[in-house]
């Protein structure tokens, strides 16, 4: 009887544990990605080039994660990360290119 119960419950406990681990892992993955994207946003802000919606997108990502929609949350984080990367490229480019627009 004990053997029979073990056969049923041990795999069930393992599955539940694994699914718990998977969920934790996704959450950890999201937190790490969100933190990195927020740091990138702050870098863009530090040089005066943060884009208008980047912070809002990160806020939406957090809300999606809170609702358990990790796929959407990760997509939003990636979008915010991309915006900040583009803003940094823009800042680097404009630090020289603006001079060409000054009327002579």
């Amino acid at each position: 009887m004990l053997k029979k119960i073990s056969k049923i419950f041990i795999p069930a406990i393992a599955v539940l544990s694994l699914s718990g681990c998977a969920s934790l892992s996704a959450s950890e993955e999201f937190t790490a990605a969100w933190d990195a994207a927020d740091a990138a946003r702050k870098d863009a802000a530090a040089v005066g080039y943060e884009w208008r919606d980047t912070g809002k997108i990160l806020g939406k990502a957090k809300a999606a994660a809170d609702e358990g929609d990790m796929e959407n949350a990760m997509k939003l984080v990636a979008k915010a990360q991309e915006q900040s990367a583009d803003a940094m490229v823009q800042q680097k480019r404009e630090s020289e290119l603006w001079k060409t627009r000054v009327p002579q």
């Binding site: 005066g48 080039y49 884009w51 208008r52 919606d53 915006q83 583009d86 823009q90 404009e94 290119l97 603006w98 001079k99 627009r101 000054v102």
Partner: peptide
């Protein structure tokens, strides 16, 4: 101020 005026910014 001049650099700000002539620099492209935002999305």
């Amino acid at each position: 101020g001049k650099e700000f005026f002539y620099s492209k910014r935002g999305q």
